[in-house]
Deep mutational scan, measured.
Amino acid sequence: HIECVVCGDKSSGKHYGQFTCEGCKSFFKRSVRRNLTYTCRANRNCPIDQHHRNQCQYCRLKKCLKVGMRREAVQRG
């Protein structure tokens, strides 16, 4: 199976330009649609994997963008 490029979980297909799991797909869509801004409580390099992906939204969104998920691919409302 193909892994989610963000957290390594099982990918459910290509979403917003990259293969991601449902969790990262939904997180990215929600973040972009609502134009959410997050803050990192650590050093902005938190581990984002299957077990830690919900611990830091700032670093999760940063990783989504770093691996090539595209904001412009998210349809507005």
Rank of each mutant, 00 (worst) to 15 (best):
H1M: 15
H1I: 09
H1D: 15
I2L: 06
I2A: 01
I2E: 04
I2R: 04
E3H: 07
E3P: 05
E3Y: 15
E3F: 07
E3N: 06
E3M: 09
E3C: 09
C4F: 00
C4T: 02
C4D: 02
C4N: 00
C4R: 03
C4S: 03
C4Q: 00
V5T: 14
V5N: 14
V5D: 09
V6K: 00
V6Y: 04
C7M: 01
C7D: 00
C7T: 00
G8S: 13
G8Q: 14
G8Y: 02
G8A: 11
D9P: 01
D9S: 10
D9W: 07
K10L: 05
S11P: 15
S11A: 06
S12A: 10
S12Y: 03
G13C: 00
G13R: 06
K14V: 14
K14D: 15
H15Y: 07
H15I: 13
H15R: 04
H15C: 04
H15K: 01
H15N: 14
Y16C: 13
Y16W: 14
Y16I: 05
Y16L: 07
G17C: 05
G17T: 05
Q18E: 14
Q18P: 13
Q18R: 10
Q18L: 11
F19K: 06
F19D: 09
F19V: 05
T20K: 00
T20Q: 04
C21V: 00
C21M: 00
E22F: 06
E22V: 09
E22G: 13
E22P: 10
E22W: 09
E22T: 12
G23E: 06
G23V: 04
G23P: 04
C24A: 01
C24Y: 05
C24V: 03
K25S: 13
S26D: 05
S26Q: 15
S26F: 05
F27S: 01
F27W: 02
F27G: 01
F27Q: 01
F27T: 00
F28L: 01
F28Y: 04
K29D: 14
K29Q: 12
K29F: 07
K29I: 06
K29S: 09
K29V: 11
R30V: 13
R30N: 10
R30C: 13
R30Y: 06
R30Q: 04
V32K: 07
V32E: 09
V32W: 01
R33F: 03
R33M: 10
R33K: 10
R33Y: 03
R33I: 13
R33V: 14
R33E: 13
R33S: 09
R34P: 05
R34C: 01
R34Q: 12
N35D: 15
N35S: 03
N35T: 04
N35M: 08
L36V: 11
L36P: 12
L36R: 09
L36F: 14
T37W: 14
T37S: 11
T37R: 13
T37D: 14
Y38H: 00
Y38M: 09
Y38W: 02
T39I: 10
T39C: 05
T39S: 14
T39V: 11
T39Q: 12
C40T: 03
C40S: 00
C40V: 01
C40P: 00
C40I: 03
R41F: 06
R41N: 15
R41T: 09
A42L: 11
A42F: 05
A42I: 01
A42M: 07
N43M: 06
N43C: 01
N43A: 14
R44G: 14
R44A: 13
R44C: 07
R44M: 12
R44S: 10
N45E: 10
N45W: 10
N45D: 10
N45R: 13
C46T: 02
C46F: 03
C46A: 03
P47G: 07
P47E: 10
P47I: 07
P47Y: 10
P47L: 07
I48A: 04
I48G: 03
I48F: 08
I48Q: 07
I48E: 06
I48L: 07
I48M: 07
D49N: 11
D49W: 07
D49R: 05
D49V: 07
D49Y: 05
Q50H: 11
Q50I: 14
Q50D: 12
H51S: 12
H51C: 08
H51F: 06
H51L: 13
H51K: 13
H51N: 14
H52Q: 13
H52K: 10
H52M: 10
H52T: 09
H52W: 05
R53K: 06
R53C: 11
R53H: 06
R53F: 03
N54W: 06
N54H: 08
N54C: 05
N54S: 10
Q55C: 11
C56F: 03
C56A: 03
C56H: 03
C56Q: 01
C56S: 02
C56N: 04
C56T: 00
Q57F: 10
Q57T: 08
Q57V: 03
Q57I: 13
Q57R: 06
Y58T: 01
Y58V: 01
C59Q: 01
C59I: 00
C59M: 01
C59V: 02
C59T: 02
C59L: 00
C59F: 00
C59A: 02
C59R: 01
R60E: 03
R60Q: 15
R60M: 15
R60L: 15
R60Y: 11
L61D: 01
K62M: 11
K62N: 14
K62G: 07
K63F: 04
K63H: 08
C64R: 00
C64W: 02
C64K: 00
L65D: 11
L65I: 12
L65S: 03
K66N: 12
K66V: 12
K66A: 11
V67I: 08
V67T: 12
G68T: 02
M69H: 00
M69S: 01
M69E: 02
M69Q: 01
M69T: 02
M69G: 02
R70W: 07
R70G: 07
R70H: 11
R70I: 12
R70M: 15
R70K: 14
R71F: 11
R71D: 11
E72W: 05
E72A: 06
E72P: 04
A73F: 12
A73S: 10
A73W: 10
A73M: 09
A73E: 12
A73D: 14
A73N: 13
A73Y: 09
V74F: 07
V74K: 05
V74L: 06
V74T: 08
V74P: 07
Q75T: 12
Q75L: 11
Q75M: 08
R76V: 11
R76D: 15
R76Q: 13
G77S: 13
G77L: 08
G77H: 11
